[in-house]
């Protein structure tokens, strides 16, 4: 018969063990993701070499023989990500500066809710706006063949990542001590000088993180680029060329492939590439963060 001390011990250790095991399912999920993306993506290397995949410009996965050149798709992803980041990151930082440095407390709550609602908009709704509002407008104004293009998708992607960038930047601006603003003002600095010379540099690390997280989201966003980027697997030569980023290729084509085919593996390989890119950006964010902690 167990003595009382032991039963007490069991009532302590049992919940601890159960909770630890359940909590570990997070690691399990992540491990499975890595495993399955690798397992389903790597077999494409039997049908095409790395060079063919990375440097090939022709993406004809259903012709015979199929061509699996992903360069235009990767290029499309990079172009869309870059354009949307250039549009949204400065704007996001500007919003954050406005919220922390200029806006009176009383109304900043309202604007924060505005940003949050913007962040809650489903991407399929923004993609739809791209199709029915922006595309016809661009088509008529710029006399294009189609308004579904790099610029259209990038503007919408910009809207998607804006709340992320603005909210995270705002947090790091907020963390700059008030005493440093006081010091700057006491030297006769204007608000603008204080913002750009003291507050922004002080929050540089957090803003860099916000920007990277924004880039990461832009890279992985699917519905907007699927609906508004035009879908042509070509390297864009201007901001108004249609593109086919990796995410939209996966989303558009996965439904038409049979499990286990070369095309199927090629799409998983794209997912694998996206996974690697986002994970390395994530590591970068963690690096920046931990460097801040050491100081």
């Amino acid at each position: 018969m167990p003595n009382r001390g032991e039963t007490l011990k069991l009532s302590e250790t049992a919940p601890r063990a159960v909770i630890t095991v359940i909590a570990m399912s997070g690691i399990l999920v992540m491990a499975f993701i890595l495993y399955f993306l690798t397992k389903e993506g790597i077999p494409i290397l039997k049908d095409a070499s790395i060079t063919q995949l990375a440097a090939g410009r022709l993406w004809y996965p259903v012709s015979s023989p199929p061509l699996f050149g992903m360069m235009s798709l990767i290029g499309g992803s990079l172009a869309v990500t870059l354009t949307s980041s250039v549009l949204a990151i400065p704007l996001g930082v500007a919003l954050a500066l406005f919220l922390t440095e200029i806006c009176p407390k009383r109304i900043s709550g309202f604007f924060k809710i505005t940003l949050e609602i913007l962040g809650f908009l489903p991407s399929v709704v923004l993609g739809f706006i791209g199709m029915v509002v922006i595309a016809p407008y661009l088509q008529i104004k710029l006399e294009l063949l189609s308004g579904l293009n790099l610029m259209n998708a990038s503007m919408l992607l910009g809207v998607m990542i804006l709340p992320t960038v603005a909210t995270l930047s705002e947090e790091s601006l907020h963390a700059v001590p008030q005493s440093q603003r006081d010091a700057s003002y006491a030297l006769g600095a204007t608000r603008c000088e204080t913002m750009f010379n003291v507050v922004l540099p002080g929050a540089a690390r957090g803003i860099a993180q916000a920007a990277i997280l924004g880039v990461m989201r832009a890279m992985g966003e699917t519905m907007v680029v699927l609906m508004a980027s035009g879908g042509a697997a070509l390297l864009p030569e201007s901001a108004f060329d249609p593109v086919r980023p990796l995410t939209s290729a996966i989303a558009a084509e996965m439904g038409e492939t049979s499990v286990g085919s070369a095309h199927y593996h090629a799409l998983f390989f794209m997912g694998f590439i996206l996974l690697l890119i986002t994970l390395s950006l994530n590591v970068l964010v963690i690096k920046i963060e931990s460097r801040g902690e050491v100081k």
């Binding site: 997070g26 999920v29 993701i33 890279m219 699917t222 995410t247 996966i250 996206l274 994970l279 994530n282």
Partner: peptide, 19 residues
Amino acid sequence: AMRSLASIPSVVLGLFGLA
């Protein structure tokens, strides 16, 4: 793992779900 999971593009999660 949690931070990585948060950063994974949703379409990649879709692929994972499929596989």
